[in-house]
Each structure stands twice: as C-alpha cells, then as structure tokens.
Design a protein around this nucleic acid. Structure first.
Length: 182
DNA sequence: CCAACGATTCGCT
DNA sequence: GCGAATCGTTGGC
C-alpha cells in the first residue's frame, strides 16, 4: 500500500479514523499511528475557527499538507491537513523504524511518542515542516495490513466543543497518551 | 503596545 | 495530582 491510495480529501472525522493504523515515516523514522484527533472547519476548538492567519495558514493548504504548530511555547505538534481548514492531530505512534534515533531525541525517556509533543520531538519535526506534503520522500503515510479496532472519546486539552467524540485510538495498544473512557 | 492564552510535558509533592 | 516552564500568536485597548 502506498501514499497515493490515501484519500486526504474526505470528511475530517473519517480521515482521523483512517489514519489510526497507518504507518507514518518522517525522513525515514517513525511507526504506526495509534492515536489521532479531528479538528474541523466549523469547530470552536480548532485553530482554524477564527479564520486563516499566518500561524494556521498550512491548515488552508491542499489536502495532504503538513501542519505544524508550537504548543505552550515548547512543543511542536504534527497534523495531517484534510479539506480546507481541517486537520488531524497525530497524538501518538508506536515506534517501529529508527527507534534508537527517536530514543536519543527523547533523551532515553520510555515514553517515546505517547503524546503530540512527544511525537513531534521523536520524529524530529521542525516548524519549517509546516506546508510540506505527505506522500513525499520526507513525509510518508502507508496503510497498515489490518483494519484496526478503534476506541473513541472526547478530545484532550481543549476548552471548547468538549462534547465532540473526535479522538480515536487503536484498541489493546500500549503507548496511548491517555486512557480512553469506557 | 501589551496582557493573556494555549490541540503539553516534566518534575516534584 | 499539581504547578511551573516557555514563547509565538492573538485580540483587546
């Protein structure tokens, strides 16, 4: 399975669900996506809620774009852009390729990529990566071999639209950023 | 111009 | 479990 099979121009919640179980490689390093969140266009919790700005410009780029933002002044978080003004936050991956490098980037912490800031650090994401495209040599996304069993829950760390169950995780998988509600 | 605020993480109690 | 760290962006004055 290859990048061109991936349909970025689809409903953002559907895209968030489909991204769980795919293999993500950034410059040859990464693993299987195990947790995502969807952020829509008419979504008070989304960075695109108040329209396009310099910061969120990549969210308004073509489907399949990379959107990187700085969180709390210290964490670079990675998103997959869907339709205009919509994106999926990668909250956790299972480290599989280039594990020693990811461990080094994470200062040998056992929590290599269980959280959006940790994912960014483990994958070596830079602010300049915003606006790049998935499907290129640097940013690969490939379907996994099996249809994943999905967990669903409310999004983490937001104060608005907290009722939308737009967080998705791979069931029976260690390394999720937080437990899902029963 | 400036104050407030995060799609978080880490260390300490 | 709680609070500090940390800084670019945002929006109000």
């Amino acid at each position: 399975m290859f990048d061109q099979d991936f349909q970025f121009d689809s409903d953002i919640v559907d895209l968030a669900r489909r991204l769980v179980g795919t293999r993500l490689l950034v410059r040859g390093v990464g693993g299987t996506v195990i947790e995502t969140e969807a952020y829509g266009r008419d979504d008070p919790a989304s960075h695109s809620w108040r329209g396009q700005t310099a910061r969120n410009a990549a969210m308004f780029g073509p489907p399949g774009s990379v959107y990187v933002y700085l969180s709390y002044g210290c964490h670079l978080c990675l998103n997959v852009v869907g339709r205009t003004g919509e994106a999926v936050l990668i909250r956790a991956i299972r480290p599989e390729v280039g594990v020693p490098l990811m461990m080094q980037r994470r200062s040998q912490s056992p929590a290599i990529a269980s959280g959006p800031g940790r994912v960014g650090q483990a994958l070596g994401i830079g602010s300049g990566d915003s606006g790049q495209r998935f499907g290129t040599a640097d940013f690969r996304l490939d379907f996994g071999p099996t249809a994943p069993r999905l967990l669903t829950g409310p999004r983490i760390g937001i104060s608005r639209a907290t009722d939308r169950p737009w967080r998705f995780g791979l069931a029976d998988t260690p390394g999720l950023s937080r437990p899902f509600p029963c």
